[in-house]
Design a protein around this nucleic acid. Structure first.
Lengths: 242, 242
DNA sequence: TGCGCATAAATTGTCAGACATTTAAATGTA
DNA sequence: TACATTTAAATGTCTGACAATTTATGCGCA
């Protein structure tokens, strides 16, 4: 049997884990100040650079923040949705691009997740969410809009749809999934005709959400999912031929 | 006007960002070796410890890995679902605990997301997934099982349910959401009676998935969501009374 | 007394150089 | 050829120092 998988890690990793555990287990609370680098070095029996490497690891995960000067130091950070959002998207994007996730798989996941909150969105949407959705539809209708701009607007539209569910946990989880998929969606160069079809479906979704009709909204979303998948297959087939 | 919000960051952050961008934008590909620390220090015009701090930041995000010895160094890491899984859960867990997310909100998000994949799970499940679900139900039926053990088994059951959809992107997104919620679920001390009700619903779900009946499975899941929410409210009310 | 400014102290940020450790290639030998 | 040894390259770690930044302290002065 393998005795212990741990001790082969370098010191800075071990120290980072020790501090991380203290935070996760609640032994250190938000905004509490960690000991100074010199004291941490003393306590762990290592040098200051080693401690610093550990602290940088934690900072990279937004678990701590550092302030300079007297009474400065490292503080336990309050994780916010906004702060973790960027990391979440970076990770999800790389995960997709590095693992050759097929367009079909990504598409399926995306629309399944959106379907999870469209019922809630229909029930709870604010006028503001609706206005955002309609504004994005208007942008998408501009024929001079670039493909990248169209995709970005598409993401914004779906983001508004997700936010309309008024559940921050859902928004957080879905934002990563939807936005990470944008590079994949960009592979589909939208023709004028397919843009029109997508805008039509977006409009039906927005209308249904506006009327608080979850059934129609869900149906339109499913149609959009099927259509997007078909577009993706078309592009893949064209590539295979050419 | 604020001239530039960037340059106030320390050197190791700047360097980490520069390298991260190179990876994200595809200028460095998976398994490509970065220059040695000494050479990076030369190129960026900083000292080796500063470069090392930057590399540790990237390592904390699993963007690179380092190997010792001759021909060792830092390599662009292929992000895998497994590797990012732990980070995802840590982040999501802290996000929930540090932002006072209500049990109701978390619960709603969790079951909404699970509902997103239960239809797929019913259509695609393997015998293996079904076996895992039934095994967890058996564990849950053991009256000597601790509350923590029951919650862990509950998570494993739902994990199997999610995996049954056979979509790695969905599994990745949902694993974080479901597992992050375990500490919140632990707040509910399950009585023998509520355990029985939960096991009954789990059994109905497993049976429906086994029969590939998405409608019944969805209905049972919704019932479970409502029941869990009720339990949570009961605990909250009991606390409020004192 | 009360105000303002210089000073000190604490802490992180950065640097330079050194040594230890690990790993694989190169070399030498039977 | 096969195996042991040496060597080189790289990361891991330590020591000590100095720079930059921020707050508190204390002093002088009105």
């Amino acid at each position: 049997m393998k005795s212990d998988p741990k001790p082969r890690r370098d010191l800075s990793t071990q120290i980072a884990h020790a501090i991380r555990d203290a935070i996760v287990e609640g032994r250190m609370i938000v905004d509490e100040r960690l000991p100074s680098e010199a004291e941490l070095a003393d306590r762990f029996g290592v040098s200051r650079p080693t401690v610093r490497e550990a602290l940088k690891r934690l900072a990279a995960q937004s678990l701590i923040r550092t302030e300079r000067g007297a009474f400065g130091g490292a503080f336990v950070n309050r994780l916010s949705y906004d702060e973790t959002h960027g990391q979440q998207i970076t990770t999800a994007t790389l995960l997709l691009s590095m693992n050759a996730v097929s367009f079909a798989t990504a598409c399926e996941a995306r629309y399944a997740l959106e379907g999870a909150c469209i019922t809630l969105a229909a029930a709870r949407r604010d006028d503001e969410h609706l206005a955002t959705m309609r504004a994005e539809i208007a942008r998408q209708s501009d024929p001079t809009l670039s493909d990248e701009g169209f995709c970005a607007s598409d993401v914004a539209f779906h983001r508004a749809l997700v936010d309309a569910a008024q559940n921050p946990v859902l928004s957080y989880q879905l934002a990563g999934a939807v936005e990470a998929m944008q590079p994949l969606m960009n592979m589909i160069t939208f023709t004028a005709r397919s843009r029109g079809a997508i805008i039509d479906l977006h409009t039906r979704i927005a209308d249904a959400i506006g009327a608080r009709d979850a059934t129609i909204a869900t149906a339109a979303l499913e149609e959009l999912a099927a259509y997007t998948l078909k577009l993706g297959k078309g592009v893949a087939a064209a590539r295979a031929r050419g």
